[in-house]
Design a protein around this nucleic acid. Sequence first.
DNA 1: TTATTATTTTAGATAAGACTAAAAATTAAT
DNA 2: ATTAATTTTTAGTCTTATCTAAAATAATAA
Lengths: 221, 221
Amino acid sequence: MFTLSEENYLKTIYHLGLNSEIGVSTNEIAKKMQTKASSVTDMIKKLSDKNLVVYKKYKGVRITDFGRNTAANIVRKHRLWEVFLVEKLNFSWDEVHEVAEQLEHIKSPKLINELDALLGFPKQDPHGDPIPDKEGNYYPLEKKLLATLGIGEKGICVGVNDSSSSFLQFLDKQKIALGNEIKVLGKEPFDDSIQIQIANRELSISNKIANNLYIKILQGS
Amino acid sequence: MFTLSEENYLKTIYHLGLNSEIGVSTNEIAKKMQTKASSVTDMIKKLSDKNLVVYKKYKGVRITDFGRNTAANIVRKHRLWEVFLVEKLNFSWDEVHEVAEQLEHIKSPKLINELDALLGFPKQDPHGDPIPDKEGNYYPLEKKLLATLGIGEKGICVGVNDSSSSFLQFLDKQKIALGNEIKVLGKEPFDDSIQIQIANRELSISNKIANNLYIKILQGS
DNA sequence: TTATTATTTTAGATAAGACTAAAAATTAAT
DNA sequence: ATTAATTTTTAGTCTTATCTAAAATAATAA
């Protein structure tokens, strides 16, 4: 099995490598993990010894199939715990991350499979991010940023781009939650703000907000 | 906050000190934790620096009020998680300990309070051990060993003395569970075995088993 | 293409937690 | 009350994960 530190590095490498064809650089990892490049080099060697990544000096790392699988399993645990915290323990979506960061390292296959069942085999976490299955596969939602919708289009709020707690708290305050139906009523060219209808209320949303909210387009809108 | 290791040592000292007036010895701790006495001495100094125990060289340690409170909180978390695993995730009582050993170190007051509420504020864990409240107080059940009951007495199975997985698995196999009503039908002087009635079945129980099962006496039996 | 800058790695140090072996203190036995 | 046996502590070493400072390599600019 892997240490806490190894799991955290692996997870970071997994996330950073998702949208890039080339290797993940030492500095990128160091910045993301708030640590020093030399520490990253040390850890990369350990992960490489355990066949979780392929490492070529000065060329960054690429995750292996084994590493990807291992990382996806940690992400699966993280996101299932987030669902549990929100659905069963009354956490709000800005409170879940920190606790899930701890819970994701608990080792017990039975625990996580039973938790999955208790929650009804959810496919997304409270931020709309997909939950990998036992094999590490997941199916990202077809989604667009609210800012890219045209006037008259409507959809369901399915996720956030920025999951900083200040943004999530803002959404809570405005009573915008996952699952809400949102319709674009108008767009203001002057400041790129957007007028929307949500749960029978009308709101004006700044461009910055609209660029951080993901919407699943409803058919026939 | 405390490290994983510090918490584990503290918990052991707490348990070993419960039924003794004098200090807990280095060797006792080492034996219980499957480690070496020298490692214990090192750790004791750290716990002492953090005011969790009082340490006098060659005289063992005594837990402080602060230490006792901290330890009781870890025990509280351990036992609440055990209830959760059995009640919500279909674990059997011999499977819960190992996972609870991990979960008890998760840091989040909200998590544990909400979990407590989800479970309906239970007072005992699946082995019948009392769950401390937020202040670290708990109320042990009035209980007797099955072996000490007289013929005709009856009570409810409320706990085990030995919680080794082999014993717990034996109980599972015999369909003896917490909450079952047990009546003593007879005692065999030759081998000190006991005949009991449990859930409309009659069973013969060896003395060794009867010395590891706690019974809450029912009034008027 | 060479010099400059940025990135990455190496070397050496530190802290936590564990170990072994030896020394010191306590307890038990004669 | 000494000696012997046991317990406990100290001293020194090891591993993991981190750091700083310096060296090596790669990328960029003149």
